[in-house]
Structures are given as C-alpha cells and as structure tokens.
C-alpha cells in the first residue's frame, strides 16, 4: 500500500513556494502533508495531496519540475515515543529511511507520518507485523 507523493524542484528565491501553493489552491488541490528539503541553491518540496495525478498535471502545465514517488503513510500513536516505536521496528529489520515527515491531518487520535524507505515492500510488512497501520492511498487522499 503505497501513497503517491508529489515532489517539486524549487529554486531558492522569495515567493517561489507561494507560487506553487497558489497554483494548487486555485485548482482545488488540498494538501495532506508537506515537507521541504533544502540545499544551498534549491529546495525540494514533497507533498501528499488529495488528487496526486491532477496535481502532477497542473504543476507540469505551470512549468514546474515534478516527480511522483511512492511513499508509505503510517499511523502512529499520538503519544510520546510513538514515532520511535515505528522507527524501532524498521531499524530492527535493517530498513533505512531516506526521509520522513508528519502529516498535517490526523486520523482519529493517531498522527500520521509519511516516509520514504530504501525497501518499500519490506518496510510495509515489517510495520504491519509490528502492529502499525499502513494507510492506503484512499485513506490518505480522503483524510
């Protein structure tokens, strides 16, 4: 169960992130999660949105460089040490995390974390065996 993440290359200059969000907002795309990774001259915005394919088309049409990547969305107990438990399960099985970020939305009393790992299928099994809920794409887009 993977969730489509939309990644966008942005130059590091004032107003550029606004332009990205503005075009999505005007086209009725709702964000579920957002993270920004930055290097010296550029940043990569990663996000989970309600309609990833539509967002991809819109952004490409607006001249952005866009990529789609599969990520895992995992429900975690919203208590101290909640994320640590998830990560512990992955660590024990040698799954490496490339990056991770939290959702804006919540699922009941649970928080949600989006993560990109090196071995996606393994990680999903590991997490489920360890008792965590890996959310489906529909779960996430319709939060």
């Amino acid at each position: 169960m993977t969730v489509k993440q939309i990644s966008v290359f942005l130059e590091n200059r004032a107003g550029r992130l606004w332009e990205l969000c503005d075009v999505l907002g005007k086209n009725g795309i709702n964000m579920r999660a957002l993270s920004i990774g930055e290097a010296a001259d550029f940043g990569i915005v990663r996000m989970i949105v309600n309609e990833p394919d539509k967002a991809n088309t819109i952004l490409k049409g607006a001249g952005f460089t866009v990529a789609e990547t599969d990520v895992l969305a995992v429900e975690i107990p919203d208590v101290p040490g909640g994320l640590a438990k998830v990560l512990g399960a992955l660590k024990d099985k040698g799954v490496n995390i490339e990056y991770a970020y939290a959702f804006v939305a919540r699922s009941g009393d649970k928080a949600i974390v989006s993560m990109r790992v090196d071995t996606q299928a393994d990680a999903e099994t590991v997490l489920e065996v360890a008792g965590f809920k890996v959310l489906s794409a529909d779960d996430v887009y319709n939060l």
Partner: peptide, 15 residues
C-alpha cells in the same frame, strides 16, 4: 535547468 528526466526527489542525488 533541472528537467523532469534528471529530477530526483532526493537532494543527495541532485547534489
């Protein structure tokens, strides 16, 4: 210019 075919969502790849 970062065209779609060289874009990676991992910063380390671009670096």
């Amino acid at each position: 210019e970062v065209a779609a075919d060289i874009f990676s969502d991992e910063i380390k790849r671009l670096a």
